[in-house]
């Protein structure tokens, strides 16, 4: 077992973990009760999954053919930058559109603030 085999093994391991996480977060999207909890599974665990997969591909190319793929690195950076914005905007829009929270929700400190604001704007 030489160095490149070990590196290949690590790259494949990264991709495998990424793929498994993607599947699990897809299951999470189905199983969770409301949009807010679903966004936890949908936007973030899957971000990590994509990152791991890309990292695995990057490592594979570097170690086997010695090719440093800048595009893969850029992909990682941009996924990192854009996915939290998307997650924030989706949940924010959902809250503004008065999508109901799940029945198990135990606290909601935002409701009073927003309602008050709307009342004062309505006057």
């Amino acid at each position: 077992m030489n160095v490149s085999t070990i590196a290949e093994f690590i790259a494949v391991l990264f991709m495998l973990i990424g793929a498994i996480m993607a599947v699990i977060s897809a299951i999470g999207i189905i199983r969770f009760p409301d949009i807010y909890t679903r966004s936890h599974a949908g936007t973030k665990s899957s971000t990590l999954a994509v990152l791991l997969t890309l990292l695995g591909a990057f490592l594979y190319f570097v170690t086997t053919i010695g090719f440093v793929s800048v595009r893969l690195l850029l992909g990682i950076i941009f996924v990192f930058i854009t996915s939290p914005v998307a997650g924030h905007l989706i949940t924010r829009a959902a809250y503004r559109a008065k999508v109901k929270l799940a029945d198990t929700t135990i606290e909601d400190e935002l409701a009073d603030v927003l309602n008050e604001k709307e009342r004062s704007e309505g006057k």
């Binding site: 699990i24 977060s25 999470g28 599974a41 973030k44 665990s45 135990i106 400190e109």
Partner: peptide, 25 residues
């Protein structure tokens, strides 16, 4: 990131989802 992903994945895979979500300030 790793710690909390582990938590979320554990919640997803648990046979009964017992979470109490909430919004706090």
């Amino acid at each position: 990131l790793i710690q909390s992903s582990y938590l979320v994945l554990k919640h997803i895979l648990s046979p009964k989802i017992r979470i109490k979500p909430g919004i706090f300030k």
